[in-house]
Amino acid sequence: MTATLSCTGLSKRYGDILAVQDVGFFIEKGEAYGLLGPNGAGKTTAISMLVGLLQPDTGSVQVCGHDLAADPLAAKAKIGYVPQEIALYPDLTGRENLRFFGRLYGLPRRELAKRIDEVLDFVGLSDRADGKIDTYSGGMKRRINIGAALLHRPEVLILDEPTVGVDPQSRKAILDGVEQLVADGMSLLYTSHYMEEVERVCKRVGIIDHGKVIAEGTRKELVSTLGSADRVELVLDGDLDVATDKLRAVEGVTEAVRAGTSSIRLIVNEGSHLLPTLIAAVRGIAVVTAVEVIEPDLEAAFLHLTGNKLRD
């Protein structure tokens, strides 16, 4: 299989800060690749370089055999870019927005009209096509935001947090649509704060932290980095900050972080055996009201590898 999108040695420095350092990965045709990282890890900088918005200090990007630096127009023509923000004109209708961006890709008038109808149908907004964007709900805006990147039928679709701030119904519609695109053979680069979305959509995942890709592989490969570790979630009543520090000091606990107002999430070796020790460790500080031992998943692997929750 040939790579639809590949990058090697991508680096970008802002003054003293090395935002992206020697990042490289590839996405095969029809493959969905997830890029996960905590805030400030360098995801957006990396994506900006992949779509030609930022010049890398070093490294190169190849899109369907076109070098992005040497032949930017040919390379960009193969990419569909869905930015994190709703990058649409609020005073124009959905159809007018699609028409404008479609024209930038050089689509002939008749062909464009046909593609606009197809895209509106795909994102389920045919009936609202002639309403102004600022009258749309958040979910509708997100869907048309994706639609604008599909008009030219790109080889690779790059989605940067495509479901931020949408209701569950719209999220489901977006994820169904994205899965459909992959099933139809489109390559995909997907970033999200929602681990379950990445697990659902992507075949392979790269984990980026402090500007570097620190791990890459299938879900199974990444979870296997945990070894015999389990994820344990304790629901407590008491001083959770002190309890977290106490739990972190327990032998066999590799990670301990606050999760919400009343939970602490832990990565532990052989969780079920260690439970009595964990409960004893917080005695006098907090009362454990519920315990859950969860089979290792991508989120546990992420926590293990980066030391951060994804939504930190």
Binding site: L53, P72, A74, E85, A87, Y89, L104, G106
Partner: peptide
């Protein structure tokens, strides 16, 4: 708005 970046990501 983000539309400038969207334009710049197009083959222009």
């Amino acid at each position: 708005l983000g539309t400038l970046n969207r334009m710049r990501a197009a083959p222009i």
